[in-house]
Design a protein around this nucleic acid. Structure first.
Lengths: 232, 232
DNA sequence: CGCCGCATTGAAATTAGTCAATACTCGTGG
DNA sequence: CCACGAGTATTGACTAATTTCAATGCGGCG
Protein backbone atom coordinates (compact mmCIF):
# COMPACT_ATOMS: atom_id res chain seq x y z
CA UNK A 1 0.00 0.00 0.00
CA UNK A 2 1.96 2.99 1.32
CA UNK A 3 4.31 4.13 -1.37
CA UNK A 4 7.88 3.99 -2.52
CA UNK A 5 9.46 6.25 0.02
CA UNK A 6 12.99 7.13 -0.84
CA UNK A 7 14.72 8.13 2.36
CA UNK A 8 17.94 9.63 3.50
CA UNK A 9 19.41 10.16 6.94
CA UNK A 10 18.55 13.57 8.31
CA UNK A 11 17.12 15.10 11.44
CA UNK A 12 14.95 18.08 10.55
CA UNK A 13 12.61 19.55 13.10
CA UNK A 14 8.86 19.52 13.39
CA UNK A 15 9.08 21.39 16.63
CA UNK A 16 9.29 25.04 15.59
CA UNK A 17 6.16 24.66 13.49
CA UNK A 18 4.22 22.90 16.19
CA UNK A 19 5.34 25.35 18.82
CA UNK A 20 4.12 28.29 16.79
CA UNK A 21 2.04 31.01 18.40
CA UNK A 22 0.03 29.75 21.32
CA UNK A 23 2.04 26.83 22.58
CA UNK A 24 4.06 27.33 25.70
CA UNK A 25 5.65 25.43 28.52
CA UNK A 26 6.78 22.31 26.65
CA UNK A 27 9.65 20.44 28.23
CA UNK A 28 12.76 20.88 26.08
CA UNK A 29 13.84 17.28 26.54
CA UNK A 30 10.57 16.01 25.10
CA UNK A 31 11.00 18.27 22.09
CA UNK A 32 14.51 17.04 21.54
CA UNK A 33 13.10 13.52 21.40
CA UNK A 34 10.74 14.53 18.62
CA UNK A 35 13.51 15.98 16.53
CA UNK A 36 15.02 12.57 16.25
CA UNK A 37 12.01 10.97 14.56
CA UNK A 38 12.04 13.11 11.38
CA UNK A 39 13.13 11.39 8.16
CA UNK A 40 13.47 12.94 4.72
CA UNK A 41 11.30 11.54 1.94
CA UNK A 42 11.64 12.37 -1.75
CA UNK A 43 9.02 11.84 -4.42
CA UNK A 44 9.10 12.27 -8.15
CA UNK A 45 6.39 13.81 -10.26
CA UNK A 46 3.12 11.84 -9.81
CA UNK A 47 4.48 9.43 -7.18
CA UNK A 48 2.06 8.57 -4.37
CA UNK A 49 2.95 9.36 -0.79
CA UNK A 50 0.10 7.35 0.70
CA UNK A 51 -3.35 6.13 -0.25
CA UNK A 52 -6.79 6.88 1.10
CA UNK A 53 -7.63 4.45 3.93
CA UNK A 54 -4.02 3.52 4.61
CA UNK A 55 -3.29 3.38 8.32
CA UNK A 56 -2.09 6.88 9.20
CA UNK A 57 1.33 6.14 10.66
CA UNK A 58 3.03 9.39 9.76
CA UNK A 59 2.65 13.12 9.61
CA UNK A 60 4.49 14.85 6.78
CA UNK A 61 5.73 18.33 6.17
CA UNK A 62 6.48 19.58 2.67
CA UNK A 63 9.98 20.99 2.32
CA UNK A 64 10.09 21.70 -1.41
CA UNK A 65 7.68 20.94 -4.25
CA UNK A 66 3.94 20.39 -4.00
CA UNK A 67 1.52 17.60 -3.14
CA UNK A 68 -2.14 17.15 -4.00
CA UNK A 69 -4.63 15.36 -1.75
CA UNK A 70 -7.24 13.61 -3.84
CA UNK A 71 -10.22 11.31 -3.68
CA UNK A 72 -11.71 9.24 -6.48
CA UNK A 73 -15.24 8.18 -7.32
CA UNK A 74 -15.88 4.67 -8.66
CA UNK A 75 -16.15 5.88 -12.26
CA UNK A 76 -12.92 7.85 -12.16
CA UNK A 77 -14.14 11.33 -11.33
CA UNK A 78 -11.51 12.95 -9.14
CA UNK A 79 -11.55 15.64 -6.50
CA UNK A 80 -8.48 17.42 -5.18
CA UNK A 81 -9.23 18.50 -1.63
CA UNK A 82 -6.18 20.67 -1.27
CA UNK A 83 -2.66 21.36 -2.45
CA UNK A 84 0.20 21.23 0.02
CA UNK A 85 3.11 23.58 -0.59
CA UNK A 86 6.45 24.13 1.14
CA UNK A 87 5.87 24.42 4.88
CA UNK A 88 2.46 22.75 4.90
CA UNK A 89 1.65 19.73 7.03
CA UNK A 90 -0.06 16.65 5.63
CA UNK A 91 -1.96 14.08 7.64
CA UNK A 92 -2.95 16.19 10.63
CA UNK A 93 -6.55 15.65 9.60
CA UNK A 94 -6.25 11.87 9.72
CA UNK A 95 -7.65 10.32 12.85
CA UNK A 96 -6.47 6.75 12.34
CA UNK A 97 -6.51 6.37 8.56
CA UNK A 98 -5.66 8.83 5.80
CA UNK A 99 -8.76 10.38 4.32
CA UNK A 100 -7.31 11.02 0.85
CA UNK A 101 -4.56 9.86 -1.45
CA UNK A 102 -1.48 12.10 -1.53
CA UNK A 103 0.46 12.46 -4.78
CA UNK A 104 3.41 14.60 -5.77
CA UNK A 105 2.47 17.37 -8.20
CA UNK A 106 6.16 17.91 -8.98
CA UNK A 107 9.35 16.40 -7.65
CA UNK A 108 8.98 16.92 -3.94
CA UNK A 109 10.89 16.59 -0.69
CA UNK A 110 9.10 16.07 2.61
CA UNK A 111 9.92 15.23 6.18
CA UNK A 112 8.14 12.33 7.76
CA UNK A 113 7.32 12.04 11.47
CA UNK A 114 5.98 9.07 13.39
CA UNK A 115 2.50 9.94 14.55
CA UNK A 116 3.13 7.66 17.49
CA UNK A 117 5.91 9.88 18.73
CA UNK A 118 4.03 13.13 18.14
CA UNK A 119 0.89 11.79 19.78
CA UNK A 120 2.83 10.51 22.75
CA UNK A 121 4.33 13.94 23.16
CA UNK A 122 0.92 15.57 22.86
CA UNK A 123 -0.25 13.35 25.66
CA UNK A 124 2.47 14.63 27.96
CA UNK A 125 2.44 18.20 26.77
CA UNK A 126 -1.00 19.78 26.48
CA UNK A 127 0.60 22.67 24.60
CA UNK A 128 1.45 20.43 21.68
CA UNK A 129 -2.03 18.95 21.67
CA UNK A 130 -3.45 22.45 21.73
CA UNK A 131 -1.33 23.34 18.73
CA UNK A 132 -2.48 20.29 16.79
CA UNK A 133 -6.08 21.20 17.56
CA UNK A 134 -5.51 24.73 16.37
CA UNK A 135 -4.08 23.47 13.07
CA UNK A 136 -7.07 21.17 12.67
CA UNK A 137 -9.38 24.16 13.21
CA UNK A 138 -7.52 26.04 10.52
CA UNK A 139 -8.14 23.11 8.21
CA UNK A 140 -11.84 23.20 9.04
CA UNK A 141 -12.01 26.90 8.29
CA UNK A 142 -10.35 26.33 4.92
CA UNK A 143 -12.73 23.47 4.21
CA UNK A 144 -15.75 25.71 4.94
CA UNK A 145 -14.47 28.28 2.47
CA UNK A 146 -13.91 25.63 -0.14
CA UNK A 147 -17.42 24.24 0.36
CA UNK A 148 -18.88 27.71 -0.13
CA UNK A 149 -16.80 28.03 -3.28
CA UNK A 150 -17.81 24.64 -4.66
CA UNK A 151 -21.45 24.98 -3.72
CA UNK A 152 -22.22 28.53 -4.67
CA UNK A 153 -19.59 30.27 -6.79
CA UNK A 154 -19.40 30.54 -10.57
CA UNK A 155 -16.42 29.33 -12.56
CA UNK A 156 -14.91 32.82 -12.77
CA UNK A 157 -15.36 33.40 -9.06
CA UNK A 158 -13.74 30.06 -8.26
CA UNK A 159 -10.70 30.81 -10.39
CA UNK A 160 -10.32 34.30 -8.92
CA UNK A 161 -10.63 32.92 -5.37
CA UNK A 162 -8.09 30.24 -6.13
CA UNK A 163 -5.58 32.71 -7.52
CA UNK A 164 -5.95 34.93 -4.47
CA UNK A 165 -5.53 31.97 -2.14
CA UNK A 166 -2.41 30.85 -3.96
CA UNK A 167 -1.08 34.41 -3.93
CA UNK A 168 -1.59 34.58 -0.18
CA UNK A 169 0.25 31.32 0.36
CA UNK A 170 3.16 31.60 -1.99
CA UNK A 171 5.65 34.37 -2.37
CA UNK A 172 4.99 38.06 -2.51
CA UNK A 173 1.24 38.12 -3.09
CA UNK A 174 1.59 39.30 -6.67
CA UNK A 175 3.64 36.70 -8.49
CA UNK A 176 1.94 33.32 -8.34
CA UNK A 177 3.44 29.96 -9.23
CA UNK A 178 0.97 27.24 -10.17
CA UNK A 179 2.96 24.01 -10.16
CA UNK A 180 -0.11 21.88 -10.89
CA UNK A 181 -1.81 21.23 -14.24
CA UNK A 182 -5.07 22.79 -15.37
CA UNK A 183 -6.71 19.45 -14.74
CA UNK A 184 -5.48 19.47 -11.14
CA UNK A 185 -6.88 22.97 -10.68
CA UNK A 186 -10.16 21.89 -12.23
CA UNK A 187 -10.40 18.87 -9.95
CA UNK A 188 -9.79 21.17 -7.00
CA UNK A 189 -12.42 23.71 -8.03
CA UNK A 190 -15.07 21.35 -9.38
CA UNK A 191 -14.51 22.41 -12.99
CA UNK A 192 -13.09 20.89 -16.15
CA UNK A 193 -9.66 21.67 -17.49
CA UNK A 194 -11.26 23.57 -20.37
CA UNK A 195 -13.33 25.79 -18.12
CA UNK A 196 -10.25 26.59 -16.04
CA UNK A 197 -8.34 27.52 -19.16
CA UNK A 198 -11.14 29.70 -20.46
CA UNK A 199 -11.59 31.52 -17.17
CA UNK A 200 -7.86 32.22 -16.96
CA UNK A 201 -7.80 33.46 -20.55
CA UNK A 202 -10.69 35.75 -19.82
CA UNK A 203 -8.94 37.22 -16.77
CA UNK A 204 -5.91 37.80 -18.98
CA UNK A 205 -7.98 39.54 -21.68
CA UNK A 206 -9.56 41.73 -19.01
CA UNK A 207 -6.10 42.79 -17.87
CA UNK A 208 -6.63 41.41 -14.37
CA UNK A 209 -3.73 38.97 -14.61
CA UNK A 210 -0.81 38.33 -16.94
CA UNK A 211 1.12 35.16 -17.71
CA UNK A 212 4.87 34.82 -17.61
CA UNK A 213 4.21 31.29 -18.84
CA UNK A 214 1.37 28.86 -18.33
CA UNK A 215 2.46 28.13 -14.75
CA UNK A 216 3.44 31.63 -13.62
CA UNK A 217 0.87 34.34 -13.15
CA UNK A 218 1.19 37.99 -12.19
CA UNK A 219 -1.70 39.83 -10.59
CA UNK A 220 -2.21 43.08 -12.51
CA UNK A 221 -5.33 44.37 -10.80
CA UNK A 222 -5.80 42.89 -7.38
CA UNK A 223 -8.84 45.02 -6.55
CA UNK A 224 -10.72 43.70 -9.54
CA UNK A 225 -9.59 40.15 -8.84
CA UNK A 226 -10.96 40.41 -5.31
CA UNK A 227 -14.12 41.87 -6.71
CA UNK A 228 -14.57 38.92 -9.04
CA UNK A 229 -13.74 36.43 -6.26
CA UNK A 230 -16.78 37.58 -4.27
CA UNK A 231 -14.88 37.08 -1.04
CA UNK A 232 -17.95 37.43 1.13
CA UNK B 1 -23.78 40.52 17.87
CA UNK B 2 -24.25 37.21 19.67
CA UNK B 3 -27.90 36.36 19.78
CA UNK B 4 -30.95 36.28 22.00
CA UNK B 5 -30.15 33.35 24.22
CA UNK B 6 -33.01 32.28 26.40
CA UNK B 7 -31.56 30.51 29.40
CA UNK B 8 -32.69 28.53 32.35
CA UNK B 9 -30.83 27.13 35.32
CA UNK B 10 -29.72 23.58 34.74
CA UNK B 11 -26.57 21.51 34.98
CA UNK B 12 -26.40 19.07 32.08
CA UNK B 13 -23.19 17.28 31.33
CA UNK B 14 -20.77 17.63 28.46
CA UNK B 15 -18.50 15.09 30.00
CA UNK B 16 -19.87 11.75 28.86
CA UNK B 17 -19.71 12.89 25.26
CA UNK B 18 -16.20 14.23 25.54
CA UNK B 19 -15.05 11.17 27.36
CA UNK B 20 -16.32 8.90 24.61
CA UNK B 21 -14.11 6.13 23.30
CA UNK B 22 -10.45 6.92 23.65
CA UNK B 23 -10.32 9.32 26.55
CA UNK B 24 -9.15 8.00 29.86
CA UNK B 25 -7.57 9.08 33.09
CA UNK B 26 -9.38 12.39 33.61
CA UNK B 27 -9.56 13.55 37.20
CA UNK B 28 -13.15 13.31 38.43
CA UNK B 29 -12.97 16.61 40.30
CA UNK B 30 -12.06 18.47 37.12
CA UNK B 31 -14.99 16.88 35.34
CA UNK B 32 -17.33 17.87 38.11
CA UNK B 33 -16.17 21.44 37.62
CA UNK B 34 -17.12 21.27 33.93
CA UNK B 35 -20.59 20.04 34.69
CA UNK B 36 -21.30 23.28 36.44
CA UNK B 37 -20.68 25.46 33.40
CA UNK B 38 -23.47 24.00 31.24
CA UNK B 39 -26.51 26.21 30.64
CA UNK B 40 -29.64 25.39 28.65
CA UNK B 41 -30.42 27.61 25.67
CA UNK B 42 -33.67 27.57 23.73
CA UNK B 43 -34.19 28.95 20.25
CA UNK B 44 -37.28 29.34 18.13
CA UNK B 45 -37.56 28.59 14.45
CA UNK B 46 -35.04 30.75 12.50
CA UNK B 47 -33.47 32.35 15.58
CA UNK B 48 -29.72 32.84 15.38
CA UNK B 49 -27.45 31.20 17.93
CA UNK B 50 -24.35 33.15 16.90
CA UNK B 51 -22.98 34.90 13.86
CA UNK B 52 -19.97 34.24 11.69
CA UNK B 53 -16.93 36.08 13.09
CA UNK B 54 -18.41 36.44 16.57
CA UNK B 55 -15.84 35.71 19.26
CA UNK B 56 -16.24 31.99 19.99
CA UNK B 57 -16.99 32.01 23.68
CA UNK B 58 -19.09 28.87 23.87
CA UNK B 59 -19.41 25.33 22.70
CA UNK B 60 -22.94 24.07 22.20
CA UNK B 61 -24.55 20.69 22.14
CA UNK B 62 -27.94 20.16 20.52
CA UNK B 63 -30.44 18.50 22.84
CA UNK B 64 -33.57 18.61 20.67
CA UNK B 65 -34.33 20.23 17.33
CA UNK B 66 -31.89 21.10 14.57
CA UNK B 67 -29.47 23.88 13.69
CA UNK B 68 -27.93 24.90 10.38
CA UNK B 69 -24.47 26.41 10.03
CA UNK B 70 -24.41 28.85 7.14
CA UNK B 71 -22.28 31.35 5.32
CA UNK B 72 -23.43 34.14 3.01
CA UNK B 73 -21.94 35.72 -0.08
CA UNK B 74 -22.24 39.48 -0.59
CA UNK B 75 -25.11 39.11 -3.05
CA UNK B 76 -27.13 36.82 -0.81
CA UNK B 77 -26.15 33.39 -2.08
CA UNK B 78 -26.08 31.08 0.90
CA UNK B 79 -24.24 27.90 1.76
CA UNK B 80 -25.19 25.57 4.59
CA UNK B 81 -22.03 23.84 5.74
CA UNK B 82 -23.78 21.31 7.92
CA UNK B 83 -26.88 20.54 9.93
CA UNK B 84 -26.57 19.81 13.63
CA UNK B 85 -29.03 17.35 15.14
CA UNK B 86 -29.68 16.08 18.66
CA UNK B 87 -26.38 15.04 20.22
CA UNK B 88 -24.16 17.02 17.85
CA UNK B 89 -21.63 19.58 19.04
CA UNK B 90 -21.39 23.05 17.54
CA UNK B 91 -18.39 25.31 17.68
CA UNK B 92 -15.65 22.73 18.09
CA UNK B 93 -14.31 23.86 14.75
CA UNK B 94 -13.97 27.48 15.86
CA UNK B 95 -10.46 28.46 16.78
CA UNK B 96 -11.14 31.90 18.23
CA UNK B 97 -14.11 33.09 16.17
CA UNK B 98 -17.08 31.21 14.79
CA UNK B 99 -16.62 30.36 11.14
CA UNK B 100 -20.31 30.34 10.24
CA UNK B 101 -23.65 31.68 11.43
CA UNK B 102 -25.76 29.18 13.38
CA UNK B 103 -29.56 29.35 13.04
CA UNK B 104 -32.33 27.16 14.40
CA UNK B 105 -34.04 25.11 11.71
CA UNK B 106 -36.90 24.36 14.10
CA UNK B 107 -37.53 25.19 17.74
CA UNK B 108 -34.40 23.92 19.41
CA UNK B 109 -32.85 23.36 22.82
CA UNK B 110 -29.13 23.31 23.34
CA UNK B 111 -26.65 23.23 26.16
CA UNK B 112 -24.02 25.91 26.24
CA UNK B 113 -20.53 25.47 27.71
CA UNK B 114 -17.87 28.08 28.31
CA UNK B 115 -14.99 27.37 25.98
CA UNK B 116 -12.73 28.88 28.64
CA UNK B 117 -13.65 26.12 31.06
CA UNK B 118 -13.38 23.30 28.55
CA UNK B 119 -10.07 24.59 27.24
CA UNK B 120 -8.71 24.95 30.77
CA UNK B 121 -9.69 21.36 31.43
CA UNK B 122 -8.10 20.22 28.19
CA UNK B 123 -4.91 21.88 29.31
CA UNK B 124 -4.85 19.85 32.50
CA UNK B 125 -6.18 16.64 31.04
CA UNK B 126 -4.57 15.58 27.78
CA UNK B 127 -7.31 12.98 27.35
CA UNK B 128 -9.89 15.71 26.86
CA UNK B 129 -7.67 17.53 24.40
CA UNK B 130 -7.18 14.28 22.52
CA UNK B 131 -10.92 13.83 22.36
CA UNK B 132 -11.46 17.34 21.02
CA UNK B 133 -8.83 16.70 18.36
CA UNK B 134 -10.51 13.47 17.40
CA UNK B 135 -13.85 15.25 16.97
CA UNK B 136 -12.16 17.90 14.85
CA UNK B 137 -10.69 15.15 12.66
CA UNK B 138 -14.14 13.69 12.25
CA UNK B 139 -15.30 17.10 11.09
CA UNK B 140 -12.49 17.25 8.57
CA UNK B 141 -13.39 13.83 7.21
CA UNK B 142 -17.00 14.93 6.78
CA UNK B 143 -15.85 18.12 5.08
CA UNK B 144 -13.76 16.13 2.59
CA UNK B 145 -16.76 14.02 1.70
CA UNK B 146 -18.90 17.10 1.26
CA UNK B 147 -16.29 18.72 -0.99
CA UNK B 148 -16.20 15.64 -3.18
CA UNK B 149 -19.98 15.77 -3.33
CA UNK B 150 -20.12 19.46 -4.18
CA UNK B 151 -17.29 19.34 -6.66
CA UNK B 152 -17.99 16.18 -8.57
CA UNK B 153 -21.41 14.65 -7.99
CA UNK B 154 -24.59 15.16 -10.00
CA UNK B 155 -27.82 16.44 -8.46
CA UNK B 156 -29.26 12.92 -8.11
CA UNK B 157 -26.07 11.61 -6.52
CA UNK B 158 -26.01 14.51 -4.06
CA UNK B 159 -29.58 13.91 -2.96
CA UNK B 160 -29.02 10.18 -2.58
CA UNK B 161 -25.84 10.78 -0.55
CA UNK B 162 -27.65 13.29 1.64
CA UNK B 163 -30.52 10.92 2.35
CA UNK B 164 -28.11 8.15 3.29
CA UNK B 165 -26.16 10.47 5.56
CA UNK B 166 -29.34 11.61 7.27
CA UNK B 167 -30.50 8.02 7.60
CA UNK B 168 -27.21 7.08 9.25
CA UNK B 169 -27.48 9.95 11.72
CA UNK B 170 -31.09 9.86 12.70
CA UNK B 171 -33.21 6.99 13.88
CA UNK B 172 -33.38 3.52 12.49
CA UNK B 173 -31.65 3.96 9.16
CA UNK B 174 -34.84 3.59 7.20
CA UNK B 175 -37.20 6.31 8.38
CA UNK B 176 -35.68 9.73 7.80
CA UNK B 177 -36.89 13.03 9.20
CA UNK B 178 -35.87 16.13 7.27
CA UNK B 179 -36.67 19.05 9.56
CA UNK B 180 -35.20 21.59 7.14
CA UNK B 181 -36.81 23.13 4.04
CA UNK B 182 -35.97 22.21 0.46
CA UNK B 183 -34.12 25.49 0.21
CA UNK B 184 -31.97 24.54 3.22
CA UNK B 185 -31.17 21.20 1.61
CA UNK B 186 -30.35 22.93 -1.66
CA UNK B 187 -28.04 25.39 0.06
CA UNK B 188 -26.29 22.46 1.72
CA UNK B 189 -25.86 20.50 -1.51
CA UNK B 190 -25.12 23.36 -3.88
CA UNK B 191 -28.44 23.06 -5.68
CA UNK B 192 -31.63 25.07 -6.01
CA UNK B 193 -34.81 24.25 -4.16
CA UNK B 194 -36.40 23.20 -7.45
CA UNK B 195 -33.64 20.77 -8.33
CA UNK B 196 -33.87 19.22 -4.86
CA UNK B 197 -37.60 18.79 -5.27
CA UNK B 198 -37.25 17.26 -8.73
CA UNK B 199 -34.56 14.82 -7.62
CA UNK B 200 -36.68 13.69 -4.66
CA UNK B 201 -39.74 13.28 -6.88
CA UNK B 202 -37.72 11.19 -9.27
CA UNK B 203 -36.49 8.91 -6.48
CA UNK B 204 -40.08 8.52 -5.40
CA UNK B 205 -41.22 7.63 -8.94
CA UNK B 206 -38.42 5.09 -9.16
CA UNK B 207 -39.68 3.46 -5.97
CA UNK B 208 -36.40 4.09 -4.15
CA UNK B 209 -38.01 6.22 -1.45
CA UNK B 210 -41.52 7.04 -0.27
CA UNK B 211 -42.90 10.09 1.52
CA UNK B 212 -45.01 10.03 4.64
CA UNK B 213 -45.21 13.79 4.18
CA UNK B 214 -42.83 16.32 2.70
CA UNK B 215 -40.53 16.12 5.73
CA UNK B 216 -40.61 12.38 6.40
CA UNK B 217 -39.03 9.90 4.05
CA UNK B 218 -38.86 6.13 4.06
CA UNK B 219 -36.10 4.28 2.25
CA UNK B 220 -37.69 1.59 0.09
CA UNK B 221 -34.64 0.31 -1.74
CA UNK B 222 -31.44 1.03 0.11
CA UNK B 223 -29.24 -0.88 -2.32
CA UNK B 224 -30.37 1.25 -5.21
CA UNK B 225 -30.06 4.42 -3.19
CA UNK B 226 -26.45 3.54 -2.36
CA UNK B 227 -25.89 2.77 -5.99
CA UNK B 228 -27.14 6.18 -7.02
CA UNK B 229 -25.13 7.90 -4.29
CA UNK B 230 -21.86 6.69 -5.89
CA UNK B 231 -20.33 6.31 -2.47
CA UNK B 232 -16.84 5.77 -3.84
C1' DC C 1 -62.78 29.91 4.82
C1' DG C 2 -58.99 32.07 3.05
C1' DC C 3 -54.32 33.43 3.37
C1' DC C 4 -49.33 32.55 3.44
C1' DG C 5 -45.30 29.91 3.08
C1' DC C 6 -43.43 25.96 1.16
C1' DA C 7 -43.37 22.34 -2.35
C1' DT C 8 -44.07 20.66 -6.88
C1' DT C 9 -44.05 20.84 -11.79
C1' DG C 10 -43.33 22.90 -16.43
C1' DA C 11 -40.90 25.65 -20.01
C1' DA C 12 -37.22 28.74 -21.26
C1' DA C 13 -32.56 30.45 -20.47
C1' DT C 14 -27.85 29.90 -19.03
C1' DT C 15 -23.77 27.86 -17.49
C1' DA C 16 -20.48 24.57 -17.72
C1' DG C 17 -19.34 20.11 -19.92
C1' DT C 18 -18.12 17.38 -23.97
C1' DC C 19 -15.99 16.58 -28.20
C1' DA C 20 -12.68 18.08 -31.42
C1' DA C 21 -9.05 20.65 -33.64
C1' DT C 22 -4.91 23.40 -33.10
C1' DA C 23 -0.97 25.32 -30.62
C1' DC C 24 2.58 25.40 -27.43
C1' DT C 25 6.67 23.43 -24.54
C1' DC C 26 10.13 20.74 -23.59
C1' DG C 27 13.09 16.92 -24.07
C1' DT C 28 15.15 13.54 -27.36
C1' DG C 29 17.43 12.02 -31.26
C1' DG C 30 18.77 12.46 -35.99
C1' DC D 1 20.79 22.74 -34.84
C1' DC D 2 16.57 21.44 -36.07
C1' DA D 3 12.79 18.09 -36.43
C1' DC D 4 9.86 15.21 -33.97
C1' DG D 5 6.75 13.53 -30.44
C1' DA D 6 4.38 13.40 -26.05
C1' DG D 7 1.99 15.82 -22.90
C1' DT D 8 -0.42 19.97 -21.76
C1' DA D 9 -2.93 24.15 -22.88
C1' DT D 10 -5.96 26.89 -25.63
C1' DT D 11 -9.89 27.74 -28.43
C1' DG D 12 -14.24 26.66 -30.94
C1' DA D 13 -18.78 24.46 -31.73
C1' DC D 14 -22.23 21.87 -29.91
C1' DT D 15 -24.70 19.39 -26.02
C1' DA D 16 -26.43 18.49 -21.57
C1' DA D 17 -27.36 19.65 -16.91
C1' DT D 18 -29.03 22.83 -13.76
C1' DT D 19 -30.93 27.33 -12.94
C1' DT D 20 -34.34 30.71 -13.60
C1' DC D 21 -38.87 32.20 -14.24
C1' DA D 22 -43.59 31.15 -13.74
C1' DA D 23 -47.79 28.76 -12.52
C1' DT D 24 -50.19 25.57 -9.59
C1' DG D 25 -50.88 22.74 -5.53
C1' DC D 26 -50.85 21.65 -0.70
C1' DG D 27 -51.22 22.34 4.46
C1' DG D 28 -51.45 24.72 8.62
C1' DC D 29 -53.15 28.69 11.11
C1' DG D 30 -55.68 32.84 12.07
Amino acid sequence: MAAHLAQRADTPSIVPALRGPGARGERPDALAALDRVGTVVTLRHDDSLFYEDDAAEYYFKVVTGAVRGCKLLADGRRHVGDFYLAGDFIGLDADTRYIFTAEAVTDTTLVRYQRRSVDALAWQEPGIGRRLLSLACRGLTAAQHQMLLLGRKTADERIASFLLAMAARSGDGEHIVLPMTRTDIGDHLGLTMETVSRALSQLKSAGVIAFKNSHEVVIRDRAQLEDIAETA
